Simulated scan of single mutants.
Amino acid sequence: MDSGFKTLTKFALSALLAATVQGVAANAESIAKGKFLIGVGGCNDCHTPGYSESGGRLPQATWLTGNGVGFKGPWGTSYPQNLRSSAAKMSAEEWIQMARRPMLPPMPAPAIATMSDSDLIAMYDFIKSLGAAEGEAPHALPPGVEPATPYIDFVPKNL
């Protein structure tokens, strides 16, 4: 091999290594930001079974796996979905599109819809870093259908 080819090869390998290291650092930063946003957003309170009852002291391996306890109100009964299996099936762009769509209560859809794309991608990156998880929450029920699962009554009383 001539020295010009060797120099070019070394340069290309160095550039590839630098880009890889930079990408890993950026992804680690995004994952950390996503974990923070999931925490302050209270996502585990609903999407992780037993999280609230444990005072937030459940292993991360159990986080965001969906919940069979519904929220019943005038909209019917909604269930917190398994975000890990959802993220595993989506691209980052599809995740952003999902976050911008209307959602059933008690999801704070207006707050989520106003988040920046980079915030939503950070949440996506963190959830993806947890890996897919088995199991799905029940599908939402329309108004007037009595859930067969435990549920929280989200109807104001004494108004």
Rank of each mutant, 00 (worst) to 15 (best):
I112L: 14
H139T: 14
V69D: 09
W95C: 00
T62K: 12
A137H: 01
S86R: 13
W63E: 13
G135F: 06
N67L: 06
R101D: 10
F71L: 03
A99K: 07
L104C: 09
S78T: 14
V69R: 10
M98T: 12
Y124W: 04
D117M: 08
G135C: 03
A140S: 13
H139C: 06
S118G: 08
D117N: 14
K89Q: 14
E94I: 08
F126V: 04
Y79N: 03
M103H: 14
A61T: 15
Y79R: 07
A111Y: 10
F71D: 03
A140F: 05
F71A: 06
S91A: 05
K89D: 11
T62D: 15
L64A: 14
G76C: 08
R100M: 11
G73F: 13
I121Q: 13
I152N: 09
A109M: 01
G66T: 00
S85Y: 09
A87Q: 05
W95I: 01
P143C: 05
M103V: 01
V155R: 15
S86W: 11
S116H: 09
G131P: 00
P156K: 06
I127C: 11
M123G: 02
K157A: 15
L130A: 02
A140C: 04
I127K: 09
D125F: 07
S116A: 13
P80A: 04
G66E: 02
F71G: 01
I121A: 11
Q81T: 07
